[in-house]
C-alpha cells in the first residue's frame, strides 16, 4: 500500500535525522554559538517532519478512506431463533435430570443394601426449577450385575410352593432411604416415596 510505504519512509527519515543530530550535538562547540546551531537544528527537524505532508498532498491519498476502511470487521448477522433457545433449555433440563438421577442412584446404592431400578423426579416450575418437588425411588434387592459375556448357569431345581412370599424390606429400610435422600438433597420427607419392586414378578410393592 502506498500509504504504508509513505509512513515507513517518513519514520525512517525522522529516526536517521535524530541520530545525526545527536552526533552533531556531540561535536558542537560549547560557547555562545551553541544556541544558534540549536535554532538551525530545530528548523531542520520541523522541515523533516512537515516535508512529507507536501508530498502526501501531491499523492492525493484520501486518508479518511484509508483510516476508516482499514480492518473493518465483517458484519455478522445473528439469526435469533426462538426454537433454538427452547431446544437449548430442554437439553439443559434433560442433562440436569440425568445427572441428578445418576447421583441419587449412586448415593442409595452406596449407603444402603438396595439397588435403584428407577427414579421418578418432578421439578418445580418457574424460577425454582432446579429444586426437586417430589421423588419416587423404585428399589429392589441388591444383586451383583452380570459380567459381560454369555454363560450358561446350571439350572437349579425349582421348588414350587403355594406361598411364594418374597422377603419385603422393613419400614425402617424405607425410612432409612428417605432420611438419606432428605439429608443429602434437602427434599421434604413427605414428598419422597420409596417403592419396592418385587424382582421377577413385575409387580410393585409399596
Amino acid at each position: 500500500m502506498p500509504i504504508i510505504s509513505f509512513i515507513s519512509a517518513w519514520l525512517k527519515d525522522i529516526v536517521i535525522l535524530f541520530v545525526l543530530i545527536s552526533i552533531a550535538e556531540l561535536i558542537m562547540p560549547k560557547g555562545n554559538t551553541r544556541k544558534y546551531i540549536n535554532l538551525v537544528i530545530g528548523l531542520l527537524i520541523i522541515f523533516t517532519i512537515i516535508n512529507p505532508f507536501a508530498r502526501l498532498l501531491k499523492m492525493d491519498i484520501d486518508l479518511g478512506e484509508v483510516a476508516f476502511n482499514y480492518n473493518k470487521p465483517a458484519e455478522i448477522y445473528y439469526n435469533q431463533d426462538e426454537n433454538f433457545d427452547m431446544l437449548q433449555d430442554k437439553q439443559i433440563e434433560q442433562l440436569y435430570l440425568s445427572r441428578v438421577k445418576a447421583d441419587l442412584k449412586d448415593l442409595v446404592e452406596r449407603e444402603t443394601e438396595f439397588s435403584v431400578k428407577d427414579l421418578d423426579l418432578k421439578f418445580f416450575k418457574g424460577d425454582e426449577y432446579r429444586k426437586i418437588e417430589s421423588l419416587t425411588i423404585y428399589i429392589s434387592k441388591y444383586e451383583e450385575e452380570e459380567v459381560s459375556g454369555i454363560y450358561i448357569e446350571k439350572v437349579k431345581p425349582i421348588d414350587i410352593k403355594k406361598d411364594n412370599h418374597i422377603e419385603q424390606p422393613t419400614q425402617e429400610s424405607y425410612e432409612e432411604i428417605g432420611d438419606l435422600v432428605h439429608r443429602e438433597y434437602n427434599i421434604d420427607k413427605a414428598k419422597i416415596e420409596v417403592i419396592f419392586l418385587d424382582n421377577g414378578k413385575g409387580g410393585r410393592n409399596e
Binding site: A9, K12, D13, I16, L17, V19, L20, I23, A24, I27, M28, P29, G31, T33, R34, Y36, I37, V40, I41, L44, F47, T48, N51
Partner: peptide
C-alpha cells in the same frame, strides 16, 4: 555524517549547511 545525511530524504543541502555552521562555530570559538 555527510554520508548518513544522504540517506535521509530531506534536502541534503540543509544538512550540509548544518555541518558548515558547526565548523564555523568552531572557528569562531
Amino acid at each position: 555524517l555527510n554520508t548518513l545525511g544522504r540517506k535521509v530524504n530531506i534536502e541534503f543541502t540543509y544538512f550540509s549547511t548544518l555541518l558548515k555552521i558547526i565548523g564555523m562555530a568552531y572557528l569562531i570559538e
